[in-house]
Structure formats: structure tokens, C-alpha cells
Design a protein around this nucleic acid. Structure first.
Length: 415
RNA sequence: GGAGAGGUGGCCGAGCGGUCGAAGGCGCUCGCCUGCUAAGCGAGUAGGGGGUUAAAGCUCCCUCGAGGGUUCAAAUCCCUCCCUCUCCGCCA
């Protein structure tokens, strides 16, 4: 959620941000609505103040005077209820619009509204030459991936990972944690079932509610990323400034409905309903948020480079940002089976968008301030496994294990 | 699943219809004192929102788990829900 005060101080900034996201919204009428709700709130509070004053005098008065005061307070009580209802209605009207607004876009986010509008910041490594099998073919050859049986059990967009692929997954998790913990990331296994406030707080509700699995019998939701649980972990807290930056590396299974993606990335486990992920999450002082964003990106590049996988870094276009992000960098790895670069990590600076809703503050020099939150993928399973087996396949069809992972998996080649 | 206890400010903990946004303690901040990594003394110290202000400040409203209700008036009474803890049962 954006600070509503921007409507009074610099509505043009909001207008510009919405324009860059390609959202058509009448800011002028929002300013008027904000004005109206404050006037109505003020009116209600004035009546309430008088009611309280009269009410307080009751206990000191006797006889007729007392009766008159009670009667007067009764009138004011009624008037207050009406005024309050009016103010609440205006607030509700305003909030419905306001909570749906995406975060203010950082001025350095790339222009445009499409995925293709992302700006390429740098390219690392060289895609290999020659004919490549894709991960599904490799999976069949080596027996480490079973999509068909997964469909029998669970439908489309699921997979059974088997044998060496499972070893690779756990190796990747340990590889990531070993490289993040020295940087102050506390490993966390968070809840993956959360209440709706965690999803509102992180900006997935109301906008992306159709992407989230829900368990209506228990009013719980399955997270699409541990970002949700990690962000909400410190909700309603006032942190010590000395504790910042507060960094976590959350490992969790992620669940995504992938609604509206019919026919897109249907092959293999590139886009599935369930995968495991190590996610970085940071609570920081506002002044260090930009640096932290670069820091998270550096951690991601370190992890990808450590595996020797070719990639490029993208500055995502304003109109392609998620609702909570002010700026986002994606790392796209080279996928030989697809012959192109595809997203394998994503790191966002969500500024105070999540902390405002979740009420996460710190005791600062100028009183309590909202922290800034940032998130970034460390390792995301399906895609990282694919990029490894595809990039490391040999002419004879075998797969070499990246050197950095060998201490963890216990073998050097698959097949 | 059954039985009970409880949710108050950064923490602990009183209050159980008006004088309570809330005693007391701890912690923290500032000042004083003290010749020593301590003690003592004084002051301050919840959050959110509105109005006014250059700012400081002043002022009003809301918040004692959440949401409703009763009442002129609720932390205090009633209802619903959530959460925590203890015991029993079941169980990875």
C-alpha cells in the first residue's frame, strides 16, 4: 500500500507512476475522495468529542441537570453514530481503490509495459554449441523425471523428481544456504499455509488472488513463495534499528495455480503448480534499500556463476512489475533445450509497500519509521534443475555435475 | 476431539462501569550526583489517524487479542470469533 498522503503532497508523482505502469486511473477524483473522507472523519470526531465531554459531566451533576445532560449526550450519541457511518463508508470506498493500487515505480525501472521491454543490464557466460536434449528427454533417458505418472496422480503441471534429480535438489539447497549464511541470512523453514492478512500484507491480495490456492474449510491459503510468510513474520512489530538489516533465507515449497497460463510452458517442469525454493528476504533501513537490492542481486549472480550457467540480468519494465515492486531485476539463465534465456531468479525492492500494510517499523532517530522490505530468489527448483541438466549434458547423453555441487551430491556424473 | 486457564504499553504486571490510554516494576533516554565498569536522585518514555504549524508545539479522535452489542458513558458487562498455555485422548 502506498502512503495516502501522497495525494495531498505530490499527486503528480502517483500519476506518473501509474502512467508508467500503463494503468488508467483518475487521480484527481481520488484526491477529491480523500478530501471528502477526511472532512467526514473530522465532523464525526468533533461530535464525538462533545459527546464525551457531556458524558463526563454526568457523574458530577445532580437532579434535573443530570437528566438534561444524559438526554443531550443521548442526542449526540445518535448524531455521532450517523456521522461515523458516513465517514466509514467514505473510508471503505477510498480503501477499496487504494489497496488495489500498485507500488510507486522507481525512476530507474525500465520503461515499457511488456516482458520484452526489460532492459538487458549484462550478459555472463557463453551458451554452449551443438544439439541438446531438453530436460524432459534427459529425464526419460536417465529416469529422473516422470511427468506422465504425475499427471495420473495430480493432473497437469506436476512432476515426480526421482533419484539423482532429488540429490541435486537437496545439494542446491545446501549450496545456497552455505553461501548465504555467512552474509547474515538466517535459514528459515516457514509455514506454507497462511491467513489472508499475510497475502494482503505482501500485495498478492486483492490483485493476484486467482493465482493462490485456498483452503476454504480452514480459511488458509498456500503460499506461492516463502516471501509471504517471511514478510508477515514481523508484522505489527517495531524492530530495533540496530537489528537492521534483518536477513532471512527461507526454504519452502511454493504453490501456484498458474491460472491464465494455459498452453504456456506446458513441457516438463518449467512451469508447475508446486516447486521448492530458497528465498532471500530482507528488512532494511530505507536509506540502504537500493544498496540491499544490489546486494541481493549480487548474491543471485554469485549462486548462478558458481554453477557456471550462462545468464543475463534484466531490469524489468515498469508496466511488467508486480504490484508490490518498485523495481525488479530478473536473472535469465540460458536454457539449451529452449534455445533462449528464461527467468530463474527475481529480486524486488518493495520499499514500504508491504511494511505499511503489515505495520513493520523500526525505532529510528526520527521516531518510528516503516522498514523497507526486499526479496530475491536464491534457488528455485524446477528451473534451476533444468538449467543444470540441460547445460551440463555431454555429447554421449550423460550429465556432468557442476563442480560446486559435487561435495553435496556425492557423484560426478549422471548416466 | 474432550476439560480448564488466559490474552492490557518494549517487557512484566495491576485495574474489573465514569476521576483509566491505563498503578507499580523492569528496560530505555536525558540530566544531576558519585573517583570508578555499580548504586542513588530527578524528568521523560505506547501506537495509529485528523486539524493547525515553517518546525517545535498545541489540539481532537481511535486503539487494553479481533469484530459486534448493552449504556449518556466499557479495558471493565453481554455475544461471536481468533490466538496462546495446561491436562486428557489420538498421532507423524
Amino acid at each position: 500500500m502506498i502512503d495516502p498522503r501522497i495525494l495531498r503532497t505530490e499527486p503528480s508523482t502517483l500519476e506518473e507512476s501509474l502512467r508508467r505502469r500503463g494503468i488508467d486511473l483518475d487521480v484527481t477524483s481520488l484526491v477529491a475522495l480523500d478530501e471528502r473522507r477526511r472532512v467526514e472523519r473530522m465532523r464525526a470526531e468533533e461530535i464525538r468529542a462533545e459527546q464525551k465531554n457531556v458524558g463526563k459531566s454526568v457523574s458530577k451533576l445532580q437532579g434535573d441537570e443530570r437528566q438534561a445532560a444524559i438526554a443531550r449526550a443521548g442526542e449526540l450519541s445518535t448524531a455521532y453514530k450517523e456521522a461515523l457511518a458516513a465517514a466509514d463508508a467514505s473510508d471503505a470506498e477510498f480503501n477499496e481503490i487504494w489497496v488495489a493500487l500498485p507500488n510507486l515505480v522507481d525512476e530507474t525501472a525500465a520503461d515499457g509495459t511488456e516482458e520484452e521491454d526489460a532492459e538487458t543490464l549484462r550478459v555472463w557466460g557463453e551458451p554452449g554449441e551443438g544439439d541438446f536434449l531438453d530436460h524432459v528427454e534427459l529425464g526419460e533417458k536417465h529416469g529422473f523425471l516422470d511427468i506422465e505418472r504425475a499427471a495420473k496422480v495430480s493432473g497437469s503441471r506436476f512432476g515426480f523428481l526421482l533419484g539423482p534429480l532429488v540429490r541435486l535438489e537437496f545439494a542446491l539447497v545446501n549450496y545456497a544456504l552455505d553461501r548465504l549464511e555467512p552474509h547474515g541470512f538466517t535459514p528459515v523453514v516457514p509455514p506454507v499455509l497462511v491467513r489472508d492478512h499475510a497475502l494482503y500484507g505482501t500485495g498478492f491480495f486483492p490483485g493476484d488472488a486467482d493465482q493462490v490456492y485456498s483452503l476454504p474449510a480452514d480459511d488458509l491459503y498456500l503460499v506461492g513463495t516463502s516471501e509471504v510468510s517471511l514478510a508477515a513474520m514481523h508484522a505489527d512489530e517495531i524492530l530495533d534499528q540496530d537489528s537492521l538489516p534483518l536477513r532471512y533465507a527461507g526454504f519452502s515449497t511454493c504453490f501456484r495455480r498458474e491460472s491464465g497460463t494455459y498452453g504456456k510452458d506446458t513441457r516438463g517442469i518449467f512451469r508447475v503448480h508446486q516447486f521448492d525454493k530458497v528465498e532471500m528476504f530482507a528488512f532494511v533501513h530505507p536509506d540502504t534499500a537500493q544498496d540491499e537490492h544490489d546486494f541481493l542481486l549480487a548474491r543471485e549472480e554469485e549462486l548462478v556463476q558458481g554453477l557456471g550457467i550462462p545468464y543475463r540480468v534484466m531490469n524489468i519494465a515498469a508496466g511488467d512489475l508486480g504490484s508490490s515492486a518498485a523495481k525488479k531485476y530478473d536473472i535469465e539463465a540460458w536454457f539449451p533445450g529452449q534455445g533462449r534465456y528464461r527467468e530463474i531468479t527475481s529480486t524486488s525492492n518493495t520499499t514500504d509497500f508491504q511494511s505499511r500494510r503489515l505495520k513493520i517499523r523500526f525505532r529510528g532517530d526520527e521516531g518510528n519509521q516503516l522498514v523497507y522490505t526486499l526479496n530475491g530468489t536464491a534457488i528455485a527448483m524446477g528451473r534451476w534443475l533444468i538449467s543444470i541438466v540441460e547445460n551440463y549434458q555431454q555429447p554421449d547423453g550423460s550429465i556432468v555435475v557442476p563442480e560446486a555441487l559435487r561435495p553435496y551430491v556425492g557423484f560426478d556424473t549422471i548416466g
